[in-house]
Design a protein around this nucleic acid. Structure first.
Lengths: 267, 267
DNA sequence: GATGCAGATTGATCTACATCAAACTTTCGG
DNA sequence: CCGAAAGTTTGATGTAGATCAATCTGCATC
């Protein structure tokens, strides 16, 4: 099931550039690249990430524990379902999808994660990753060895609490996706998806009305419990009715209010 | 939105008896009933619950923190969405459903919890409960004040780890429900539901093939993203094909293997 | 700049499940 | 023990979204 590890030429591409497509699903080795140690104090995601609310001295301590960074190219797996769990990962740059798979091989996108997000949380309970994490573009994550995180949390109330909060928020998010999957029409699902992205981009200081989707129609469909054709049709319909403007993966929300209103509407 | 609190006559009914139906959705006050303090050391759910793996001395400490017990009658709410969060709850006797609700009022069952389960985990992240918990029968829970739990966890590695694990496992469970809601046919969903119950009853020492459902067809449907009529038809069909035997809420699994095989099958 | 291929769009048709409807059964308060 | 209400079953019909299929578009590689 697991492809052989394939080393990545260290720091071959500054992230965000037009790095060459890899897309072979290679496993990303956890490599420490020169002095690319995590530096939370200067990280732009400081206020959204795990160390939120820590003071300078605490930040310094946390940095000593937050291990190396890992670079991923588009299509690389950060971890796979079933692998031994040892670390959480904080996304510094880029984005990943996580997918769960059923016994019969069916696969479903269970999450769409962007910078500042912590992933790998579902591995704590069983000591094995319960899903696969795949980079959707060139991506960089900080490695957070969980045992050391636990140790540190014991003497740092704020960090301890942040950890509980991150886990808990993931649960809340999942509950809302369950609501979406269980009781919303296709149209509503896509609207919720777009509004959620909009909100997350806004909180990260990016435009909340113009962004580029990192997932294919098929991946979005999988995430929303729909088929790719349905997703495509909905994008077209939303464009026709003046709600959005779409050009492939590039989306512009023209009328977010109307999009919001659409949620919770009868057919 | 919140109904006025309504006191419950203390310990009017030994649990499990034919306690009179209440069903008015009354709010259960957190009452401490005489000396009904939690006693993990003698609790039958010790091995499944939060204190799993603690030694005798640790257990003793935990007991001092695990507050009072609360009794609920069928239909009572343990907490409601939006209420301030302060405690987790460990189910001692009985069962509860949790429901999330969308802005437009739509409600969906997000969980079906039985003895040994810890509920309220989604409140940690926001300091407010994200869902409502309603007793499905006469039920008793232990109150675990979260702040004191956090304090205790700082000096008790095993408890700290258990807490993280419980949170993480809830995430894994939710991911699997997302998989179910997003990509399984109605038949498969009900089969997974029944097999999951079977497994949970087995691990609690009850029969894994004969049990009584505590939810209505409508609640089961809501949980599985189906309509009550569909659930009812599926029960009938499963009975016709000899997979199960149903009599209202009483279910007997006649062929669990076939039920398992059904999952992941094309139409 | 040509070529190949993954991804996207759009149309026609099918179907699993929802919806509407009616009868039946169980539960529970009085 | 009766009657109302809640819950369940079963049938007839409707429909949102799936499936099948064909074409189109963009972008990565040579």
């Amino acid at each position: 099931m697991t492809l052989p590890a394939k080393p990545i030429p260290a720091a071959s591409q500054p992230n965000g550039s037009g790095a060459s497509r890899q897309g072979d699903g290679a496993r990303a080795p956890v490599i420490s690249i020169r002095d690319l140690k995590a530096h939370c104090s200067t990280c732009s995601m400081r206020e959204l990430c795990l160390p939120v609310g820590l003071n300078a001295e605490e930040l310094r301590q946390v940095e000593t524990v937050f291990g190396n960074r890992v670079k991923l190219r588009k299509g690389d797996s950060l971890y796979r379902a079933g692998e031994a769990f040892s670390s959480l990962y904080a996304i510094r740059i880029g984005s990943l999808k996580t997918t769960v798979l059923a016994e019969d091989g069916r696969e479903q996108v269970s999450g769409y994660h962007m910078l500042g997000d912590i992933i790998g949380l579902d591995g704590i309970g069983t000591d094995h990753h319960g899903c696969q994490a795949v980079a959707l573009e060139d991506t960089e994550v900080c490695v957070l060895p969980f045992e050391r995180l636990e140790d540190l949390a014991r003497n740092m109330t704020a960090l301890q609490h942040n950890l509980y909060q991150f886990l808990s928020r993931e649960i809340s998010r999942d509950h809302h996706i369950m609501l979406l999957l269980g009781s919303m029409r296709a149209e509503e699902r896509l609207a919720v998806f777009l509004l959620n992205l909009s909100d997350r981009y806004r909180r990260r200081g990016y435009s909340s009305t113009e962004f580029v989707l990192r997932m294919t129609r098929e991946e979005i469909g999988s995430y929303l419990g729909l088929k790719l054709e349905t997703v495509s049709r909905l994008f077209s319909r939303f464009q026709e009715t003046g709600l959005i403007q779409v050009q492939g993966r590039a989306v512009k929300l023209l009328d977010p209010a109307a999009l919001k209103q659409l949620v919770g509407q009868r057919s």
